[in-house]
């Protein structure tokens, strides 16, 4: 069934087909991609300096994440994973929270009121069904909100993926399954996760629509997700979208990709850099230039500095606080343990 991945912007920045968005909107998406890349570089550097715990870089996946997240409305939900900070930030999850979480602080998971984004899922595969339940609840409550879940190619191997897809299709929940197929799940290529030709093909078995999109083309991703979201919103059921992209960096900052993949493959994907093609397109339209680029990078740098400063200003949880969010009201056992820690230390 596999067709060519849907594409609107060729790697050289040529547009095929109609403009899916006004130029101003496209500039906005591009700016968000610049911000995302700056943050990613900043986080990788901070991890090397010991200021973050492990970090999962998303360099190369900015178009997939920004394209998908930008197709949601404020009332829609995002249920994503550890590599999806760019998407989460675009949905209003503060960068300072994303950084705080990665320093090793639970409060990174506390999104501001009104931001419908769950903390990133660290377990692979368990979160997709949550987007089914959330979307289902919205329908039961009579709203038209949609839930989008992001996951990797590796996550489609977990049993929970099957259950999530099946529930969503059987109950026609307004859920969008957005798979970032970045070529690798730690050291395993996608071909070792599935014998199917594409991940999108899997949709067929659930009676769901599946499609493949060029994940490094922010316009194609945005357009595909926008359609899936409106189908879901209209009560016509879920969609599985496979965005073909590539993890340029290591799996996490503790991984050494030299052990399992050819650097030439990385280079070939750098040629298809998701930022470059939008920039080229905007430049040919007269909507972007060197000055705009310099300004965008400068602003992103300031934003990153401010978010890092805000995160690093937060004092670590004290001994009392590690007990305070396990239950609405701590049990007597926890109170006893808290008192013990206060009295004896650790």
């Amino acid at each position: 069934m596999s067709a060519e991945p849907q594409q609107l912007l060729a790697p050289d920045g040529t547009l095929h087909g109609d403009l899916p968005l006004p130029l101003g909107e496209i500039s906005r998406l591009y700016r968000a991609m610049v911000v995302a890349r700056v943050f990613d570089g900043k986080c990788s550097a901070m991890q090397r300096q010991g200021r973050l715990a492990t970090y999962a870089p998303y360099e190369g996946q900015e178009a997939a994440q920004i394209g998908a997240a930008s197709a949601l409305e404020a009332s829609d939900w995002l249920v994503a994973s550890y590599r999806d900070a760019a998407a989460m930030a675009l949905r209003g999850y503060p960068w300072s929270n994303l950084i705080l979480g990665r320093t090793g602080d639970e409060r990174g998971g506390h999104a501001p009121e009104g931001v419908r984004v769950l903390p990133p899922s660290i377990t692979v595969g368990g979160h997709m069904i949550h987007a089914v339940g959330i979307a289902w609840a919205e329908r039961l409550k009579g709203t038209d909100a949609v839930a989008l879940t992001m996951f990797g190619d590796g996550a489609t191997s977990e049993g929970d993926f099957h259950e999530a897809m099946n529930f969503a299709a059987v109950f026609a929940t307004p859920t969008v399954f957005f798979c970032q197929n970045n070529g690798w799940a730690i050291s395993l290529p996608t071909s070792r996760q599935t014998a199917a030709e594409t991940i999108a093909d899997k949709a067929v078995g659930y009676g769901m629509t599946g499609l493949v999109v060029d994940g490094n083309d922010v316009l194609a991703v945005h357009e595909a997700v926008r359609r899936a979201v409106s189908t879901a919103r209209a009560g016509e059921g879920p969609t599985l979208i496979e965005a073909l992209t590539y993890r340029i960096g290591p799996h996490t900052t503790t991984d050494d990709p030299g052990r399992y993949r050819d650097p030439a493959e990385v280079e070939s994907w750098r040629e298809r850099d998701p930022l470059r093609r939008v920039r080229r397109f905007l430049e040919t339209q007269g909507a972007w230039d060197e000055d705009a680029q310099a300004a965008a990078e400068h602003d992103a740098g300031l934003e990153a500095e401010a978010a890092v400063a805000a995160a690093e200003m937060v004092a670590a949880l004290d001994g009392d606080e590690i007990f305070s969010a396990m239950y609405a009201v701590p049990t007597i056992h926890l109170e006893e343990q808290r008192a013990r820690l206060r009295r004896d230390g650790r």
């Binding site: 090793g104 602080d105 001994g319 590690i322 926890l334």
Partner: peptide, 14 residues
């Protein structure tokens, strides 16, 4: 303790 193991910054309390 009867808690989730705290993340890096507060793990030493656990």
């Amino acid at each position: 303790w009867d808690t989730v193991v705290p993340l890096r910054r507060a793990e030493h309390h656990y």
